Simulated assay, not measured.
Amino acid sequence: MRLHDTKVALVTGANRGIGYELVKQLALNDFKVILASRDPNKGEDAAQKLKESGLDVSFVRIDVDDQESIRQAAIAVDRKFGKIDVLINNAGMYGDENENFLTTAPSILEKTMSTNFFGAYYVIHFFIPLMEKHGYGRIINVSSDYGAMSQLSRQGAGAYKLSKLALNGLTRLAAAHVHGDIKINAVDPGWVSTDMGGPNAPRTPMQAAESILWLATIGPDGPNGGFFRDGKRSDW
């Protein structure tokens, strides 16, 4: 199969948890997958583990808090593959838990917004030209039900909620500006048992991955600018 015929996907924050499972499942479905991680040692190890299972996985360093690393990664992907078909903004952080938002250190809000909102924005900014030159792409922003407007009337996790609300806004705004067969959607994977979600979470990374991956293969009549959970639209 020629490279041009093979779909190329990139997943950020993918050396563990949901991201790692997304890379694995995409590769099992015949994608060439680029595993992106800010830690080159952990990222290389994760990619190598999947390659040893016979999967077509490579590694690129992306620290979503570092614009230059994103720009360099986009250049490297363009040189190697000449395109990107699927982009999953999975990297994220959850730093404030149940603190009072009004007394939370401003640095926590700034760091959370930098990672969860601006990180996704810059990944889209630098990678979407690779989609536009071929008129095809699927961008999936991994959000949360905490990003729904209704959640803002409840206390707790204020920085995280605002960052995901902004990510949802970015999804809708960016989707309104794309042309050709390019789709941008947000997904709530639910509460997932990962390092971020903790051991008590009811959903596995595989269940979360399944709730996300259907958007990677939607056809030209598929949704654009939507917010989904398990394939069903969620309220903003």
Rank of each mutant, 00 (worst) to 15 (best):
A157Y: 15
S150N: 14
N100K: 13
A201M: 13
F117V: 05
D56N: 12
I184A: 09
S144C: 00
N224E: 05
D85A: 02
V57G: 02
D195Q: 12
K164R: 08
L102Y: 15
G119K: 13
Y160C: 07
G156E: 06
R71D: 07
Y160D: 08
M206A: 12
D45R: 10
D63G: 02
N89W: 05
M1E: 14
H4M: 11
L26G: 06
P199H: 08
F101C: 14
T112K: 01
T204Y: 01
E110D: 09
K7F: 13
G43M: 04
S37Y: 05
I218T: 13
D66E: 09
D188G: 02
I182S: 06
M1I: 09
K32A: 13
G92C: 04
R203Y: 12
F81S: 02
F126P: 03
A159V: 05
L102C: 10
N224W: 05
D45H: 08
V60C: 09
H177F: 01
A159M: 08
D66T: 04
P205A: 03
K133N: 04
I34D: 03
V64C: 12
N29D: 15
G231I: 04
A209C: 02
I84Y: 01
K32G: 09
A74T: 09
E97G: 09
A216Y: 01
T217E: 01
F126T: 06
V187D: 02
G19C: 05
K133D: 06
V60P: 06
K49G: 00
K49R: 13
K183C: 01
L170S: 07
G13D: 14
P129R: 06
E52H: 09
S53G: 00
G226C: 01
F118N: 02
S58W: 11
E99D: 13
D78K: 09
Y146F: 14
L152H: 09
L167T: 15
K49M: 09
I139V: 05
M93C: 12
A120N: 03
I124Y: 01
A9H: 09
I70R: 00
E21V: 07
L22I: 10
W191R: 03
Y160P: 07
A76Y: 09
L162D: 07
N141V: 04
A76S: 15
L130Q: 08
D56K: 10
W236C: 07
L22H: 03
F59I: 04
A186E: 05
N168R: 11
I88K: 12
K232W: 00
N15D: 10
E110L: 10
V187Q: 05
D181P: 03
